[in-house]
């Protein structure tokens, strides 16, 4: 996994609540057997019409908005456990998703792929959405070490929570499997009802 430190970027404001994983990547695009290429179908049915033409009113089709930060409404990533949702967001180029609330499984999937879910307050989310909608050139800094997210132009900032273990994994590019493989002796002992 790639190491994560500080990201400074413009953002894409997706002003929708309850964005479920079926919207992020519809089930009919889950037939691949590798992890690549899902970005093409990110938000497929919001992004393209039935003739595969881009829908002009969808935010990803608006050239004014760019960047590696996605700002979305409350309760992002609910529904299916498909990790393809996290893969699609990463593959498209996002490194951070900001919302005021994340679904549990999505949050784990994102973290396991080096995609940082940043949970902010409802009020800060509204400010962020408004600022970026008003000025697409607004820059945002996400500092993992300090655990802060900042609107750089006005220096409005909010701290965010992340578990110390997960933080360390992201900063060092470790994944959980590396750790689990290092304790297989303990697993074996657990199965035998003994301790190491």
């Amino acid at each position: 996994m790639e190491k994560f430190s500080t990201i400074t970027s413009r953002a894409v404001p997706l002003d929708e609540e309850n964005v479920d994983t079926d919207q992020i990547i519809p089930a009919r695009f889950l037939k691949a057997i590798d992890r690549q290429g899902f970005g093409e179908n990110l938000f497929r049915d919001w992004r393209y019409d039935e003739h595969d033409s881009p829908k002009a009113d969808f935010i990803l089709n608006n050239d004014a908005y760019k960047g590696s930060i996605l700002i979305a409404g409350k309760n992002f990533g609910s529904g299916s456990s498909r990790e393809h949702a996290a893969w699609a967001l990463s593959d498209y180029g996002f490194k951070v998703v900001v919302s005021s609330f994340f679904a549990d499984i999505f949050k784990n999937n994102a973290l396991n792929n080096g995609l940082l879910p940043v949970q902010v307050s409802n009020s800060f989310l509204s400010i962020m959405l408004k600022k970026v909608q008003q000025d697409p050139a607004e820059e945002i800094e996400v500092n993992l070490e300090k655990q802060t997210i900042t609107l750089l132009r006005t220096d409005e900032s909010e701290p965010f929570e992340i578990n110390p273990y997960k933080k360390k994994c992201l900063q060092n590019g470790y994944d959980d499997i590396d750790y689990l493989l290092s304790i297989l002796k303990k697993v074996d002992a657990y199965e035998k009802g003994t301790t190491v």
């Binding site: 456990s81 498909r82 990790e83 393809h84 996290a86 499984i105 784990n108 999937n109 396991n112 792929n113 994944d175 959980d176 499997i177 689990l180």
Partner: peptide, 9 residues
């Protein structure tokens, strides 16, 4: 339910 990385774990 779990994601695919967790299936691998």
């Amino acid at each position: 339910g779990i994601g695919t990385s967790e299936v691998e774990m």
